[in-house]
Every structure is written in C-alpha cells, then in structure tokens.
Amino acid sequence: MLHTAGMNRRHLMLGAGVLAASYAVASAAKTDDSPALEPIDLSGVSILITGCSSGFGRLGAEHYARLGAKVFATMRNLPRPEATELETLAARENLDISVLEIDITKQHQVTAGVAAALDATGGTLDVLINNAGMALSGPIEAQDMIATHLLFDTNVYGAQRMIRAALPAMRTQGHGLIFNVTSQLGRVIIPGIGQYSPTKFALEALSEQLAYEVASHGIEVTIIQPGGYPTEIWAKQVDPSKALKSRLSDDVLQAYPRMTAGMGTQNNGGGNTDPMDIPRAIAKTIAQPAGSRPLRIALHPVARPQEAINTVSAQVQRAMLEDSPYGPAVKSVLD
C-alpha cells in the first residue's frame, strides 16, 4: 500500500517534452526512467487509470501490474475488443488487472466505477491516474460550442469527476496520489490545435490548485506533461474533427485556410518516441518516498520548452504565497 507523510517538503523535478511542431523530428531515445536501471516494486499498490483502451493508459495498466500493482483499467463502451484483449493478457500473465467501464463524461459511470474499485480493495485507493483525453484540430473561431463542450467535458470535467469520486476515500485513509496527464501544450501554444491547449492549460491550473489544497490530507498531485508521442489520440481526432469541419461556414474555412485544410486528417503526431516513457515515469514517481514526489514532470527525449515556464511558475507561486497562510502547503508542494 502507498503511504504518504503529509506536509513534507519536496524537490521540484522537471522532466522532458517537445513542441507540436517538433513532433515529426523527435528521436526514439529513452528517458532515464527504465526499470532495468532502477527496479521498482509496486506490490500492494492499488491504481485506477482512465482511458485504458490504448496509448499511455493501456501501456500503463500492463506496466504497473507487471510491477506488482493491483490495477483497475477503465475504458468506455464495454464490451469492446480492447477490453477482452487486456483481460486475456492479464489471465495469461497472471496480472492483477480488472477492467471497469467508465466513460468520464458520464457521472453515473464515474460513481459506479470508482465504487467498484473501492469495493474490491476494501475501501482504499492509493493512486488515481487521469489519463483519458481527446483532441480536435482547427482555429478557435472554428470551435463551435458542440466541439468546445466535448473537449472540456472530456479533458477537464472528466478529470474533475474522477477526482471528486476518489478523494473521499483518500482523505479517509490519509494518503493518496493523483496523476493528471496534461501535455506540453498545456504550457506552450501552437495555433490551430483547437481547444486542446485551453483544456490542458485548465487541467494544469486545476491540478496545481488541488495539490496545495490536499497536501494537509497527505495526498499528493503530480502533473505529467508529455511532448509528442505516437498514441491513438491522433487517429481518434480524425472523425470528430471531420464532423466539426462539416459544420463550419465557408467564411470561417476561408478565413483560416492553413489551419482548416487539414481538419479531419491524421498527422504523424509523435514521431518515433517511445510511449513507455510515460508509464515508466509514473511508476518511478509512485515508488518515490512520500513528500519527495514532484508537482510536474515533463516527458520527451528531445526538447522540453515548458521546463522554463514550470520553473518561473514555481518561483512566482513561492514569492506570492510563501509568507501567507498558504505558505506551508505551497512549500510542501514546490520544494
């Protein structure tokens, strides 16, 4: 079981990431988070992950279970082939993976799914990984309210639903760890990526505020900021982006020709980078001593433009709040 030590000071660790414009030239280099270099044992740790049908969620579910964790891998629209495949793999390798149905845009599924996980563990949950998310393309003017609501409902409100469902148990047990997967595009901006950056900026702010607020309960929050990685988010944005484009007026299409021309098509998003960088970094963070976990980890082997923003942000937060009544919480999170 994962235990935390309340308000210990922590080292601010900065990871790696890359601009969307650099995705195509990203190398396949690994990070230093390889389990081969530092064996990790997650035995007894219960982990609930959203968005496990593919990408970081699916890779993570397997990785944490192979390190000994009890994993609740959630995905929407069950039954589906991805769920059957994961359950078959778990049975073959004797991994403790339970597949649960959670569509994070549906409150009743969030409530029922988290309750099922808590029932299976006797009422405790050590780690929540808010991984599920989606993208759409196009300029901001092209993002009608259908698209805007869909992006915020998935990338922001979905994480909030999961957080609110998990926190009561974490507060009762006096420990817990929440990972929110944002993006390097939650700190830096590339034009033409629709509401993706706005939602990830929002999740960054939500996560940092939450970290200060729950520190006194022994609960820690870590923000994962991936750069470009070749996951299925790029393929899954094709249909909703195509549907959005079909709703646009000729006036909007012609006003932003470079940004609307590719809507509904798939780019190479991520190059040759290794998506396992993210599960490795998360596993390493889970295994760190209580109070030493970083607020933000930027991940990518090539460039990390958001690191400068992370550093300045931490400095400003300390300067603004360290002598206020919030000082102890801010210091425990940022130091």
Rank of each mutant, 00 (worst) to 15 (best):
L2Y: 04
H3C: 07
R9S: 14
A16P: 08
G17K: 13
S22H: 13
A28N: 15
L42Y: 00
S54L: 01
R58M: 04
L59E: 08
F72M: 00
A73Q: 06
N77R: 13
H108G: 13
H108L: 10
V110I: 02
V110M: 04
T111H: 03
L118I: 07
D119M: 10
T121V: 00
G123Q: 02
T124Y: 00
N130M: 00
S137F: 02
G138V: 08
E141P: 05
T148S: 08
H149K: 13
F152Y: 09
D153Q: 02
V156Q: 03
V156S: 01
M162T: 05
R164E: 11
A166H: 04
V181G: 11
T182A: 15
Q184W: 10
V188C: 05
G192I: 12
I193T: 11
A202T: 10
L203Q: 11
S207M: 12
S207A: 13
Q209K: 14
L210F: 04
L210G: 00
T222Q: 00
I224F: 05
G227F: 12
A235K: 14
S241R: 04
L244F: 02
S246P: 09
G264F: 09
G269K: 03
G270K: 10
G270L: 12
N272F: 07
P275F: 00
D277P: 03
D277N: 01
A283E: 09
T285Y: 08
A287P: 01
P289E: 01
P289M: 11
G291K: 09
R293G: 08
P294H: 13
A308E: 12
N310S: 08
P328H: 06
A329R: 12
V333I: 07
